[in-house]
Amino acid sequence: MVRFENVGMRYGMGPEVLRDISFHLRPGSFHFLTGPTGAGKSSLLKLLALSHRPSRGLVTLFNKEVSTLARDDLPAMRRKIGVVYQDFRLLDHLSALDNVALPLKIAGARDEQIYQHVAELLDWVGLGNQVDAKPPTLSGGEKQRVAIARAVINRPQLLIADEPTGSMDAEMGLRLMYLFQELNKIGTTVVVATHDLDLIQRFGNPVMYLKDGLLSSRSAANIPAQFSESEG
């Protein structure tokens, strides 16, 4: 599903923010990605979301090496990936409903098929009353739920979430984590970046630990209790 081999990444001419990253995610797996702030979690997810290219190394998604892809192949690949961005990236002038419907529209679905489905999903994430609200009028947690709904609406094969529950209370956060778990059960490969060590402990999924641009993988029981602990 996903394979990184000696991947390095830098922004422009800046320093490498990711160094020698190698890992492999099997189809249907569920991983957490954690590490201190600035470690490069979002950067790694940008590589997964086909939003940036690695500056070195090989990234393979859906059995295709990314650097060999033609520009025309990218949209089809991206439609198989759902992404929840740390900064949501909703379109401010569209209603919550239209924001969530966007991936379906872009993929060419017809309107009547779209809206019923979208309204149900928004209802499920607790935004049934705010389908017509524009993102600037929503709270942080509400925006985040719209972003999550948009990421899962067309049942992606790979779901990437960057701090998906950071802006909401623990209860709602758990509810959405269960949504991810459900999607994982029907075959979606899930990667969730989070600072929330309690959440990681509670779910017990394998963890990728990123620090200073370097990756190590460990089990949930084996992560430091605090990021400041300089260990490993």
């Binding site: 086909l50 949209p75 089809a76 439609r79 990236r89 379109l91 966007l102 991936p103 872009i106």
Partner: peptide, 16 residues
């Protein structure tokens, strides 16, 4: 540019 980037990442083709 930001909206265009989002559309791109959601899988919109250049043509769209």
């Amino acid at each position: 540019s930001e909206v265009i980037q989002v559309l791109h990442l959601i899988g919109a083709r250049d043509n769209y």
